[in-house]
């Protein structure tokens, strides 16, 4: 049958509006000046339009980051929605940049925009990708590190969605611990 004009053309709204950020390391500038808001979107269609036209994670230069955060939350510890929170951190081996990074980052984005964590999705602030020579990192940030039921539920679902082996352990670190660490090791508050 013929569709009435406009029927079927509505975009699919997301639960949240999301902001995509890009960080490019320039040591001559302060950290915050290297962080750029790329765009915001709030429909499934606009997400793919953007994702399909930006560089894949594996093609970014070392020192660059992507971050996807709910509109109104800046991708930094200092934001009021982040400062009591923490992150589920997935650290990748160097060789996984070519084999796995793009798939894992896309899966992370789909978890966020699809609200994969059921009632605990409200605890999610965003996700960060760090492209680094020594090994890339992906993390989901949540807003309250002390909220054990939410944090552990999110961790279990996230690990399953990434398709990680049960033998692989991922850890949740409070931003407060990461910010005050005296070496490169931050203790895990939770693991799944």
């Amino acid at each position: 049958r013929k569709l009435p004009l406009g029927e079927g053309l509505e975009k699919h709204p997301l639960e949240n509006r999301w902001a995509l950020w890009f960080f490019k390391n320039d040591r001559n500038r302060v950290w915050q000046d290297n962080l750029h808001l790329v765009t915001k979107f709030e429909t499934v269609e606009d997400f793919w339009a953007i994702h399909s036209h930006i560089k894949l994670a594996s093609k970014l230069s070392s020192g660059c980051d992507y971050a996807l955060f709910k509109d109104g939350i800046e991708p930094m510890w200092e934001d009021s929605r982040n400062k009591h929170g923490g992150r589920w951190l997935v650290s990748l081996a160097k060789q996984q940049r070519q084999s796995n990074l793009d798939r894992l980052w896309l899966e992370t984005l789909l978890c966020l925009i699809g609200e994969a964590f059921e009632e605990y999705s409200e605890e999610v602030c965003g996700a960060v990708l760090n492209v680094r020579t020594k090994g890339d990192k992906i993390a989901i940030w949540t807003s309250e590190a002390e909220n054990q039921p939410a944090v552990t539920f999110i961790g279990r679902v996230y690990k399953e969605r990434l398709g990680l082996s049960p033998k692989v352990i991922i850890g949740y670190q409070a931003h407060a611990d990461t910010a005050t660490k005296s070496n490169s090791f931050t203790k895990n508050k939770f693991v799944v």
């Binding site: 699919h12 997301l14 639960e15 789909l110 699809g114 609200e115």
Partner: peptide, 20 residues
Amino acid sequence: EKKRYDREFLLGFQFIFASM
């Protein structure tokens, strides 16, 4: 009602927009 989408639904839109 919360707008939740599973991965298969979301992935279904991928190649439409990759070609635009």
